[in-house]
Simulated scan of single mutants.
Amino acid sequence: MTGRISIGVLLCVCCYTIHYSIADDIQDNACYKDENGISCHKTTYKLTRLESSFVGSIKEVVLTDGTELELKTLSLKPLIFELPNFLSEEECNHFRSLAHDIGLEPSQTLKEKTENTNFNILDLDGDRKLSVPEMRVTIEEAFDVYPHDEDILEMYAETGLDANNDGFITPNELNKLKPSDLQRYVRSFVQNQPEKHARLSNQVWLYPDNSTDSVFERIQKRVSEIVALPIELVKLSDFQVVQYGIDGHYNAHYDSTPVDSKYPCCVRFDKRNCRICRYMTILFYLNDVQEGGETAFPVADDEMFNATEVKLDKRNLFQKCDEAKLKVLPAKGKAVIWYNHFIDNTTQWLGQLDQYSIHGGCPVKKGKKWIGNFWIKVTDNKDEDIKRMEKFI
Rank of each mutant, 00 (worst) to 15 (best):
I371S: 12
K377Y: 02
D28K: 07
G372E: 01
V259T: 02
T17Q: 04
I386P: 02
K77M: 05
E158Q: 15
Q203M: 08
V328H: 04
S97H: 09
M304Q: 14
P171K: 12
E134Y: 11
I343G: 06
Y339N: 12
K178A: 14
Y185E: 14
D28V: 05
E51F: 01
N345L: 08
V145T: 04
V204T: 15
F81S: 04
I231P: 07
P194T: 07
R315T: 11
S188I: 01
C92H: 12
D162H: 08
F86G: 08
C265T: 07
C265G: 13
T379N: 02
D260E: 07
N345S: 11
V61I: 13
E232P: 04
K262P: 02
V259F: 00
Q183V: 05
N210K: 04
G293A: 03
G333F: 01
N202S: 09
V215L: 11
L283S: 03
N29C: 13
R315C: 12
Q290G: 10
E232H: 10
D354L: 00
D383T: 15
I219S: 13
E173V: 01
M280W: 00
V62T: 11
K33W: 06
F374W: 15
L317H: 09
P298R: 04
Y285R: 10
I393V: 15
T64C: 13
K262T: 06
H253C: 01
V190K: 09
G37T: 13
S214L: 10
D247R: 08
D354T: 00
L122S: 04
Y339F: 09
Q352Y: 05
L74C: 11
I276D: 09
T281S: 00
E140V: 00
I152V: 13
Q27L: 13
W205I: 05
Q193R: 09
Y20W: 05
R128P: 05
L10H: 12
E217V: 11
F216P: 08
F216T: 06
T138M: 04
K369Y: 06
Y263I: 11
N165M: 07
T64Q: 15
T257E: 08
D25L: 08
I139G: 07
R128L: 09
Q240R: 14
K387S: 09
N306M: 01
Q203G: 06
T114E: 12
S256V: 12
C321Q: 10
P363K: 11
V13D: 12
E303R: 08
Y339K: 10
Y20K: 10
V299I: 12
H341C: 02
V234C: 02
D162Y: 12
K33H: 04
F119N: 02
G360V: 05
N287I: 05
G126K: 10
W338V: 03
C277R: 01
D181N: 09
A163C: 09
D255G: 05
F284V: 04
I80F: 01
K366I: 01
K178N: 15
